Amino acid sequence: MIEIGTAAEEAVAGSESEDGGTEPLRTVCWRGRGIAFTPLDPDDAELIHGWLSDPVIAREVGTWPRSLSAVRGRVESDHEDGDRDDFLVLLPDGTPVGHIALTEQNLIDGSAAITLMLDPGHRGQGHGTAAVDALVDLGFGELPLHRIEAETHTTNSAARGALAGAGFVQEGVRRSTCLHRGRRYDLGMHALLRDEWEALDRPRSWDLPADTD
């Protein structure tokens, strides 16, 4: 489990709730370009359930419809899993726009995997690549990782674009791997190695000012 010092933590403004109130402040534990991470909490299960129920995400991710209680159970289980770290992706005003996780952490082999889900209403604005950039900075900057990988449907152009923008290389395709709505889908296998990350010409998360867009 990644431990981030309190020196990097700060509160961000809450977002307006449906009843006109303001959601509680969230603690920022990591930053990217125009986004920030806050640890995923079991109380975020309803938000995750809403995203998983969206038809765009259901089509591109291939999710199976699940009850809120089932999603809450999964979030709680993941929260206790020491081999993964889950975060909400926040805008500067505290609006949650996605869920990202560093999973399958194996510090002996130096490997891990990334999963990412964005609110469809906030796609196409660069938040996906910014979030992936920030998470690989966290993985390579704070852990002795050598390889971070990700997989996505070969038809999911948004996810493939976010990964390519973050420097990931498609290494291969697992053909006809999953079934969704009566159709077989291929999965593209993508990865970023430490030396490739080191060669990227961009500021790292710890070099970004808090108000960076």
Rank of each mutant, 00 (worst) to 15 (best):
I2A: 06
I2D: 07
I4G: 13
I4Q: 11
G5S: 13
G5Y: 06
T6W: 00
A8C: 07
E9H: 15
A11V: 08
G14Q: 04
S15G: 02
S15M: 04
S17A: 13
D19R: 03
D19N: 10
G21R: 03
G21P: 02
G21T: 13
T22M: 11
P24K: 11
L25E: 14
C29F: 09
W30E: 12
G32E: 10
R33W: 06
I35L: 07
F37V: 02
T38E: 12
T38H: 06
L40N: 03
D41E: 15
P42E: 12
D43W: 03
D43T: 14
E46Q: 01
L47E: 08
H49F: 14
H49T: 13
G50L: 05
G50F: 02
W51F: 09
S53G: 15
D54Y: 15
V56T: 14
G62Y: 14
T63Y: 15
W64L: 09
P65W: 13
R66C: 00
S67P: 00
V71S: 02
V71R: 01
V75M: 00
S77E: 15
E80C: 02
D81N: 13
R84L: 14
F87Q: 06
F87C: 09
F87V: 11
L90C: 09
L90G: 12
L91W: 01
P92G: 10
P92R: 05
D93E: 15
D93G: 06
G94H: 08
V97R: 01
V97L: 06
H99I: 08
I100R: 05
L102C: 10
L102D: 13
Q105M: 15
N106P: 03
A112K: 03
P120N: 11
P120L: 15
P120W: 11
G124H: 03
G124M: 01
Q125A: 09
G126E: 11
G128A: 07
T129H: 01
A130F: 00
D133C: 06
D133L: 01
D133Y: 08
D133M: 04
A134N: 10
L138S: 12
L138C: 13
G139C: 03
G141C: 05
P144C: 14
H146T: 07
I148Y: 12
I148G: 09
E149F: 04
L163H: 00
G165S: 04
G167W: 05
G167A: 09
V169I: 14
Q170E: 12
Q170R: 15
E171M: 01
V173Y: 07
V173G: 05
S176P: 01
T177A: 14
T177V: 05
C178Y: 13
L179I: 15
H180T: 13
Y185I: 04
Y185P: 00
H190S: 12
H190P: 01
W197F: 09
W197Y: 10
A199S: 14
D201G: 05
D201I: 12
P203S: 05
R204C: 04
D207Q: 15
D207P: 03
P209I: 10
P209N: 11
P209D: 14
A210P: 03
T212R: 07
